Amino acid sequence: MDFRLGELFCGPGGIAIGARDAAFEHNGEIYSISHEWANDYEKDTCETYSKNICPENVGSVICEDVRKLDIDNLSQIDGLAFGFPCNDFSIVGEQKGFEGNYGPLYTYGIKALNKFQPSWFLAENVGGLRNSNDGNAFQTIIDELTATGYNVVANLYKFENYEVPQARHRIIIVGIRNDLGLTFKVPIIKNPKTITSREAIEIPSIPTNAPNNELTRQSENVIERLKHIKPGQNAFNATIPDHLKLNVKGAQISQIYKRLDPNKPAYTVTGSGGGGTHIYHWEENRALTNRERARLQTFPDDFVFCGSKESVRKQIGMAVPPKGVKLIFESILKTFARIPYDSVLPNIETRNRDLFGKMVMEPTEDYITN
């Protein structure tokens, strides 16, 4: 059973790799997910996706604003993935929600669901989505996804618990079409191994000819500042001479000139930000290379990102970790194959405001083993 996958806001291909790698055989039948078409609006991102995911069919990647995309001319799909833009829902930012430029873009996923009625969908966004517009944005999105005819399960995934070497927390919503009579369960790894940033970057060592591995030029001032910052510290909690301290008033972002702790997963890899936001090596006085950042995001070393160094940085930071999403896709396939897997109750619960007032979302520790 092969599911043809369509993607909106596809990014460089993190979701596509996870989907591709989730395939398995059961009772003589192959369960798999194959690329059908994808859409994004940034040229470098589309080139990266085409080069690595579908080099034999680059025309299946439509590079244009989703608001201009003619979905009527797209081929039929069995699964839909859309990591709709998070800019207006992220806790780092103004949190404009639906009132921003990006907040309403999830509706194009709704349109695709209504048109194609695929067997399942997967939608991804930042954890801040829960609180945007006082929780109204999240509830509205859940309601509209449900209204398209799907049994919807939302969960806040902490990817470091899924053997990703990074503390990256994302809401992933999975829906299975109601008439299929199947219910997705949130997968868990019972005894996950903690993958540290040192392990991710050094084991195995990055090949000398690996793509996207250029060093960033650091100013003497930055190098001197980093000499005073210990692993796990940042520019504000380290003991730094006055002439090297940052002149910052108001909020102090903890990731500014923050070194990795080599004995822990990395902090969240981001795709934008000025000086001091590039993630810094625990020992060497420098920012990470893009290939090292890609390692933290679990991209394979032969995955080539296209574009300038800053464009590549953005693509890596905005991507979904392939290793983390692979397990979710695998669980979707197991649901259709009716194969039991270890699961946990969703840690996001949406409740009817008419009955309970303000929406409540509580984590649960009730584990289910199937």
Rank of each mutant, 00 (worst) to 15 (best):
M1G: 13
D2R: 13
P12K: 12
G13P: 15
A19I: 06
E25M: 10
E25A: 07
H26F: 15
N27T: 10
N27F: 12
K43E: 15
S50Q: 15
K51H: 14
N52S: 11
N57Y: 01
Q76F: 06
Q76V: 08
I77K: 13
V92K: 14
G93L: 14
G97M: 02
G100F: 05
T107V: 14
I110D: 01
A112W: 08
N114A: 12
K115L: 12
S119E: 05
L122G: 13
L122C: 14
E124D: 02
G127A: 13
N133G: 04
N136W: 10
A137F: 06
L145R: 10
Y150C: 09
N151I: 02
V153D: 01
K158M: 04
F159C: 07
Q166F: 04
H169Q: 01
I176Q: 01
R177V: 00
L180C: 03
K193G: 00
E199D: 14
P211W: 01
N213G: 00
K230Y: 08
V248T: 13
R259N: 05
D261F: 00
G273P: 10
W282S: 03
A294E: 02
Q297P: 01
F303A: 05
V312P: 03
I316Q: 01
I316K: 03
G317I: 14
V325M: 07
L327R: 13
F329Y: 10
F329Q: 02
T350C: 09
E365C: 04
D366W: 08
N370I: 09
